[in-house]
């Protein structure tokens, strides 16, 4: 299972209660209200535990965590060790 399926499965199971038909790859979690502030923390905990990455406070921005595509790109960047987007630039 690749990153997209894992993240999608987690979001659908935890926030949409199994009804994931309307969830596309670029559906914004924050604009549609799928995930709120406590949900973001759950998502970050899930990413940190399942992939073993450490997500800093500066990386909690919409460009990294807003939709499934952003999350997978962010994860790949993290796992490859290349510098990621952050608030500081």
């Amino acid at each position: 299972m690749n990153h997209i399926d894992t993240v999608r499965h987690f979001v659908v199971e935890n926030f949409l209660f199994g009804d994931g038909e309307s969830l596309k790859e670029d559906t914004s979690f924050l604009e549609t209200g799928i995930i709120d502030s406590t949900g973001i923390l759950e998502l970050v905990m899930f990413l940190e535990e399942s992939y073993g990455v450490k997500i800093e406070d500066d990386e909690l921005i919409p460009e990294n965590l807003d939709n499934i595509r952003n999350i997978t790109q962010f994860l790949e960047r993290k796992l490859n060790g290349s510098p990621s987007l952050s608030k500081l630039g």
């Binding site: 924050l30 502030s37 909690l60 921005i61 919409p62 965590l65 807003d66």
Partner: peptide, 21 residues
């Protein structure tokens, strides 16, 4: 800023987007 979690993390960038929407 808007913080939450244990230990508290700064979520203001994400929450601001929700509020703007």
């Amino acid at each position: 800023s808007f913080v939450g979690g244990n230990p508290a993390r700064n979520l203001s960038a994400l929450v601001n987007k929700t509020w703007k929407q």
